[in-house]
C-alpha cells in the first residue's frame, strides 16, 4: 500500500487536476527564457567558486539592523573578484597577480542583452553603471587567466 492507494478515485482526480493546473500556470515568457538558457552551455568552462554573498547570510535571518549594500566574492584561476551592488550600479575589485597590468577587464553577461565590458584600473577597481535587476554573470579576463562566475540574480 502506498499513500496513493488510500485516496479515493475522486480524490486522486482532484490532485491530478491541481498538478495539471501548475503546468497550465507556466507563462510562455518563462518557458522561452528557460529554453533559451541552453544557448549559454559551454563544454569546459571553469567556474569560479562563490566565497561569500551577504544575501545568503541574510537569509539565515540573523543579521544586524544595519543594512549595507549586497556584497559578493568569488575566487578561481588565481583571481579573486569582489562585488558590491550599490543600487543599480555594480562596483568591483579584482585581486590577483595580473592586476595592475594593462588589458585586464571584466565583462558583464546577461541573457538577451549585449555583453558590456569595463576596464579594470591599475588598483584593480572597475564599475558598471545602471545594471539593474535580473540574471547576470561576470567574466574577468587578466592575461592568461580568466574567471567566470556562476549565474546570480541581482
Amino acid at each position: 500500500m502506498s499513500e496513493w492507494d488510500e485516496l479515493s478515485d475522486d480524490e486522486l482526480v482532484a490532485l491530478v487536476g491541481e498538478a495539471v493546473a501548475e503546468t497550465d500556470a507556466v507563462s510562455d515568457r518563462r518557458r522561452e527564457a528557460a529554453r533559451g538558457a541552453f544557448a549559454w552551455r559551454s563544454v569546459d568552462e571553469e567556474l569560479a567558486e562563490l566565497l561569500h554573498d551577504s544575501a545568503l547570510e541574510a537569509s539565515a535571518a540573523v543579521r544586524s539592523s544595519a543594512e549595507g549594500p549586497r556584497t559578493l566574492s568569488y575566487a578561481g584561476a588565481g583571481l579573486t573578484l569582489e562585488l558590491e551592488i550599490d543600487g543599480a550600479d555594480v562596483l568591483g575589485e579584482v585581486v590577483g597577480a595580473e592586476v595592475g597590468a594593462t588589458g585586464v577587464s571584466v565583462a558583464l553577461q546577461r541573457p538577451g542583452v549585449d555583453e558590456v565590458t569595463a576596464p579594470v584600473d591599475a588598483a584593480g577597481f572597475f564599475r558598471f553603471a545602471a545594471v539593474g535587476q535580473g540574471s547576470v554573470r561576470f567574466v574577468v579576463s587578466a592575461g592568461e587567466s580568466s574567471l567566470t562566475t556562476p549565474w546570480v540574480t541581482l
Binding site: 528557460a34 549559454w40 552551455r41 535587476q133 540574480t153
Partner: peptide, 17 residues
Amino acid sequence: EADGDDVSQTVWLRLVE
C-alpha cells in the same frame, strides 16, 4: 512576477552550468 521570472531564469542558467 518580475523577480519570479529572474529566479526562474537563474535556476535554468545554473542548471546549464
